[in-house]
Write a protein that binds this DNA or RNA. Structure first.
Lengths: 232, 232
DNA sequence: TCAAAAGTGTTTCAAGTACACCCATGT
DNA sequence: ACATGGGTGTACTTGAAACACTTTTGA
């Protein structure tokens, strides 16, 4: 393919990175996994987890790899946030970065592995200034998380398999940063018919105990095919 | 910065392209600008407009440059769609592509320039199979256009400065692919208070003539700051 | 027995939807 | 005079928002 090699040769090549905005939910708080950078430039400063896209590796795969390296988790909900392509965004070199955000169950991830990488879970209002354009990435990720959570049942990715309605509500209160009416929330969610009520109760937060529920993905997809639209 | 050069050296570099999904609105139809590719591989086949990101050029700038080269237009509404990073997506080489969609006023663009590039405006249902993953890019762009148009007044980017309410309505009918009630649409839009009613009338489509309106961006932004949310 | 969270029901209000009629005018 | 698209008003329906009371049980 002679002409092909003509078309692609002589074209400048670029360093391409992936950065991960990793959300977690713990103690009724939305948290973010950030690390203290181990390499220069900006060694020791706060940063998102990231890495370079390798040859023969898709950007999605690179993001999944980086996530696994820091948390030990696989098959995690991830969505691409977008490309950050300003020339001067990385002070060390011209790097084009593809940002991904991920939702993980904090309890399930490998805390020891994360610590080895200098990783910390911080609440949203505790996030220090980050290197490069990582602050903007987080802002964009939060916006996308909110938009996405509004019409898709991605919130469940942040909760344990079994959860109470109070937990679910406080999750959305954290995501949207405003209170939701306890009774209306319950009514709305149960009316959707996508939660499976379990016999077990969670007694850690009240004497009476709150029923545990499980997200019924089967039922959700079935309803979706019939035109149902999730909305919170 | 010795350690910095250590960190970045030896890292694989990639070809990075931008591809443009360019929407236009003409004769009450939503259209897409596609070209017949002039280079191998896939010469002669249908493709989106695109090009490679140069050194010292941001991805946004590259997308704007490609748009200008094919249409002659500058300062156009553009939004990033996302990164397409599969390893085998381009059969000629490993190319990471950043897709952008743009909304342009068809009347204002340089038709001669476009023709030189083998460009054609095609209606959505006329789009032939495209090379690589361009078909998927279009599907994604349409989805994003719909989502975006739902809560942001981006539709006006596709209309001439002065337009009738009927034109505006048929634009949204095209975007959403379903009919909207003529009377309710008018009521809703006028109630928003973001349209400036002009004295002029457009008599091309009726004997009575329809009033022309102009989108009042000032007023829209003012209302937005007060919490107003556009929705159609 | 009482504090604290869980669970249930009702009323109100706003926004969307459906729909019918009059208006202006070129042919 | 009439056909054609432009313009206006009203009744209905649905769903969100606001809100008060009862239940359970460990301390």
């Amino acid at each position: 393919m002679e002409s092909a090699s003509t078309f692609y040769t002589g074209v400048p090549r670029h360093l391409v990175a992936v950065d991960g905005i990793i959300f977690g939910f713990e103690d009724s708080r939305l948290k973010l996994l950030v690390i203290q950078r181990k390499v220069d430039p900006k060694q020791g400063e706060w940063s998102l987890v990231g890495g370079f896209v390798q040859e023969g590796e898709s950007t999605d795969a690179a993001a999944a790899r980086v996530l696994k390296q820091t948390t030990g988790l696989e098959n995690i909900f991830m969505d691409q946030l977008g490309c950050y392509g300003e020339v001067e965004r990385d002070s060390g070199a011209r790097v084009i970065s593809i940002a991904y955000y991920a939702l993980i169950r904090v309890k399930e991830h490998d805390h020891i592995l994360a610590e080895e990488h200098g990783a910390h879970w911080l609440e949203l209002h505790q996030i220090p200034p980050l290197i490069f354009d990582h602050g903007r990435m987080i802002a964009d990720a939060l916006k996308k998380l909110r938009d996405n959570a509004h019409f898709h049942p991605i919130g469940f990715e942040l909760l344990p398999e079994k959860f109470t309605l109070s937990q679910l509500r406080s999750l959305y209160e954290e995501i949207y940063q405003h209170e939701l009416d306890r009774r209306n929330f319950r009514k709305k969610l149960l009316a959707m018919n996508i939660l499976e009520k379990l016999e077990e109760k969670d007694k850690t937060t009240s004497k009476k105990g709150a029923h545990l529920y499980r997200f019924d993905k089967q039922k959700y997809e079935q309803l979706t095919r019939r035109g149902f639209v999730f909305e919170i």
